[in-house]
Design a protein around this nucleic acid. Structure first.
Lengths: 340, 340
DNA sequence: TTGTATGCGTTATCAA
DNA sequence: TTGATAACGCATACAA
């Protein structure tokens, strides 16, 4: 390994001053005369000095990075764009402060816990972002026991166990969706949801039951794994009921688009006989035919916001949990009043 | 900041031995008796000792992470799944060795260069993966001047400037595509390509010209920015030619799917009057109607392979450039012989 | 205003 | 087999 790296003492030697003088000068701190400061800066610049990141981390106990564990399986990651949009927003915001995103993958909940414990014990990151919080999630307990590690949870505050969370406005979204279906005249609506163990699924379930009860609508719900196969299967089951729903809301875009195919196969016309709505918007919803009405969440902005909150926590500020800006419903061709 | 971290000297004190004995024991190195080793291991385990990552990095000059700079703009990242699939494969392979992926974003080529220079100077990563190499790319020069930093380029070897590269088999893919169109009986084929400055676009351009010339086919090509809007615009232009192409290959899935809409709008039937083929496969191609014939690249495997090569380079091995496994053509409903 | 000295937590060298 | 001790590069308290 070539060690062409320039250190502070190299600069000190070249400038004919002490290493502390160099350190003060480079960090713009008092303790050196203007003359030596100028000389040091000039020499350091000419020698191409940059602070060694490991040494800096060791010295001030910060790594200038936040951690994210990817747990989705490859299948899902290849299809959904949520994680990529989130990463995009996160890194863009972190960039402004010179922070990095440290990404690791885990093939199971257990191995994710191992990575998180390692981060806490080794100080490899300054903060952590947690996704897909489940009911009774062990990660909540872990970070509750380690208040020294800043952590932000993307989940409803009801399951963050007192930790700081950035929540989706699920209640508001459910209201928006149910209201829209009601206005179109639908009386029987259904939902094809994500896995029941996920916190946000639980929150959505409750919100949907409330909203539909309020308007006296019939409501049924299936829980799945977000895959197109499950989307198709649930759609078939729902449409073969004696009194099938006339509007179905899918918890992600992939299932909604897959459902279009199923409807076509069964000879059910969209939107004349069936309205299909996706809880997630994406390019998929835009290019399918018919295009799919969807709830747009602006995940990139969410990434920015998450990074901002984490950076503030790392700065020692007391950051309160908050609810993200409400989603917007994007009207497209897959929804409408019953016809014929 | 709570300093609840357990250090080696804490363990040494608790076990009643010296810190060097602890270090030897924990790193499974000779120099301690079996008895003290056992005792140290037991105590360290009970105290929950884990090596501090910054200290370890400073000591052995390695960070156990590889760097990746994201430069796509948010728009594109939200749509295409290539980067996410790559990251998925990368992190999965890195995980086995306890390595992390350090991600930063850059809003311009200039700022990417700044990040890369910083990584080289500060030693923040043990190796770097470079994407989207352009002709005369300054990054090639940068890393040529810094052979101490392992780097892998995902590009054709013709533009890697002697640096190690993992190349797509563009020639083989072009052959596959042109041959397929020829067999279907198409005489005039066109291609809607990515930006001309990208290295792989250049390579594809050459390969396509060769392959079409070989079979005496008419060939025309437009260069774009991968966006659906450009995909639509180019499709309209091509179809309004006096002798329009009967088969069009798009350099990515997004443009291919967008082209379906344009063809429908213009009353051109796919595949009876026009075959549409995508150079990238994805879920999009699968759910569009008609579904789109596409070249499948297995990007996740590519990520695995990249990580493997980088880890070997970091281990000091001499890694040769190589060409990735050939792509497969997935036949769907958007291509076929001319009808009517 | 300066330079010296010490700590950060490891690993590795060298006497004992 | 052990236990001091230096080195990694930076920051900083303290003495000159």
């Amino acid at each position: 390994m070539l060690k062409s790296k320039v250190t502070i003492s190299d600069v000190a030697k070249a400038a004919g001053v002490s290493s502390s003088a160099v350190s003060y000068a480079l960090n713009d701190k008092p303790g050196v005369s203007a003359a030596t400061r100028d000389k040091v800066l000039k020499v350091a610049d000419k020698m191409g000095w940059r602070p060694n990141s490991a040494a800096k981390s060791l010295s001030d106990a910060s790594t200038r990075s936040i951690g994210l564990v990817l747990t989705y399986d490859t299948q899902v990651l290849s299809v959904e764009t949520y994680t990529m949009e989130l990463i995009s927003g996160l890194t863009a915001e972190l960039e402004a402060e010179g922070y990095s995103l440290l990404v690791r993958s885990a093939h199971s909940a257990r191995s994710e816990m191992d990575v998180l414990k390692e981060w806490i014990a080794t100080g490899a990151v300054d903060g952590v972002l947690l996704l897909n919080i489940e009911l009774g999630d062990p990660r909540v307990e872990l970070f509750s026991a380690h208040p020294e590690m800043p952590v932000l949870l993307l989940c409803d505050t009801s399951m963050s166990g007192g930790l700081t969370a950035l929540a989706d406005d699920e209640q508001g979204s459910a209201h928006l969706l149910v209201d829209y279906c009601h206005e179109l005249g639908h009386q029987r609506i259904a939902r094809v949801a994500g896995p029941e163990r996920f916190g946000h699924t639980f929150t959505r379930d409750n919100a949907f039951m409330e909203e539909t009860a309020e308007l006296d609508l019939q409501y049924s719900c299936f829980h799945t794994d977000y895959s197109p196969e499950e989307g198709r299967r649930c759609t078939e089951r729902l449409l073969s009921l004696p009194k099938p729903p006339t509007a179905i809301i899918y918890d992600n875009d992939v299932m909604a688009v897959a459902a279009l195919q199923t409807a076509a196969k069964l000879g059910v016309s969209v939107p004349d006989q069936l309205s299909i709505i996706s809880w997630d918007d994406s390019f998929l919803c835009n290019v399918s035919s018919p295009s799919v009405t969807a709830l747009s969440r602006n995940v990139v902005r969410r990434g920015h916001q998450s990074a901002r909150m984490l950076l503030d926590m790392i700065d020692g500020e007391d950051v309160e949990s908050m609810i993200d800006a409400p989603s917007e419903l994007v009207f497209r061709d897959s929804s409408g009043p019953l016809a014929g």
